[in-house]
């Protein structure tokens, strides 16, 4: 080590470059360049456009913010993502508390189930919801048995079905980071709060919740990003009238072969989702005084 330092700065970084270099090069060629290329493409016009133009312009982005199909799908994507993320959090937080106070065997069992569902195919999990929400499926049959409906109601292929499946898909991504951050809170912190006269609920609100903020932020951010970019789920459980942005963009690429507009739509989604996550991170770190 001391020899390489003597030989100069370049040598010091040599082993790092040898080990990291190949991946950086790979990711540059197959990730950074294609994205740059896509961004460049999105500034062009498509032969089928009303007024095709030569050279670069933001026409495709203007189109994205003006056409009702893209605007609606952007709004819908945002709405579905927010709702799904909030529901996922509300459902998952009790599971993390349950994990915290369970004996080891139950704990491992819950975590195994979580991992297995994380590892199960998304298509298969969505199929499971098609089964649950089917016309002759259990939910319909229970509601008919309870005499709430007279005839089966179509429950799949709707926004509600998409949200249900997205919540289900996001659960492991919410449970694991929150449980991880709960584990890092020393038990003595909760005990101190109790000994100072706070009951369990107050302790949860004033000590546990703020201290698990890094995990809550990680989980909600991940869920939100997953929902914003969801494609397979609305494809399987939605209808054309519930299309989300990824679907609209893919449609332009695959069906219309409109590469410029498809690129512009997906870039708009990417930037929009980054912007929201960024604002969220800023809010969390400011309000909760947590480094995120």
């Amino acid at each position: 080590m001391s020899i390489s330092i003597k030989r100069g700065r370049g040598r010091k970084y040599l082993p790092a470059l040898v080990m990291l270099g190949p991946l950086i090069a790979f990711m540059f060629i197959f990730y950074a360049v294609p994205f740059g290329n896509m961004a460049y493409e999105s500034l062009h016009s498509w032969p089928g456009d009303e007024k095709p133009h030569v050279g670069l312009s933001v026409f495709q982005y203007e189109k994205t913010t003006q056409k009702s199909r893209t605007v609606k799908s952007l709004k819908r994507t945002f709405r579905i993502s927010i709702i799904s993320t909030i529901i996922t959090f509300i459902i998952c937080f009790p599971i993390t508390l349950l994990l915290l106070r369970s004996p080891p065997r139950i704990k491992v069992g819950i975590l195994l189930v979580t991992f297995i569902s994380l590892a199960s195919s998304l298509i298969i999990r969505n199929y499971g919801w098609l089964v649950v929400l089917a016309d002759a499926g259990p939910i319909n049959n229970i509601l008919i048995w309870l005499k709430i409906f007279e005839f089966p109601k179509r429950m799949a292929y709707s926004e509600g079905a998409i949200i249900t499946a997205l919540v289900h898909y996001c659960m492991p991504f919410m449970i694991l980071p929150i449980y991880g951050s709960l584990l890092r809170i020393p038990a003595s912190n909760a005990e101190a709060s109790l000994s100072l006269g706070a009951n369990a609920w107050t302790t949860l609100r004033r000590v546990i919740l703020p201290l698990s903020m890094p995990g809550i932020f990680g989980g909600t951010m991940l869920s939100f990003a997953i929902c914003m970019s969801s494609y397979v789920t609305p494809l399987m459980l939605g209808s054309p009238s519930t299309a989300m942005v990824s679907q609209v963009a893919a449609e332009q690429i695959e069906v219309q072969l409109n590469f410029p507009w498809g690129s512009a739509i997906i870039i708009t989604l990417t930037l929009g989702s980054f912007l929201i996550v960024f604002i969220y991170a800023a809010l969390v770190s400011k309000v909760m005084r947590v480094d995120v």
């Binding site: 990730y31 360049v33 294609p34 290329n37 942005v245 963009a249 980054f274 996550v277």
Partner: peptide, 24 residues
């Protein structure tokens, strides 16, 4: 910066990666 670059594909819309790659 390098870490963020290498981990970033996870946070992007997966369809965006598909669309970028097919054109490339």
């Amino acid at each position: 910066v390098l870490t963020a670059f290498l981990l970033s594909p996870v946070t992007l819309p997966t369809v965006a990666i598909g669309i970028a790659l097919i054109q490339f």
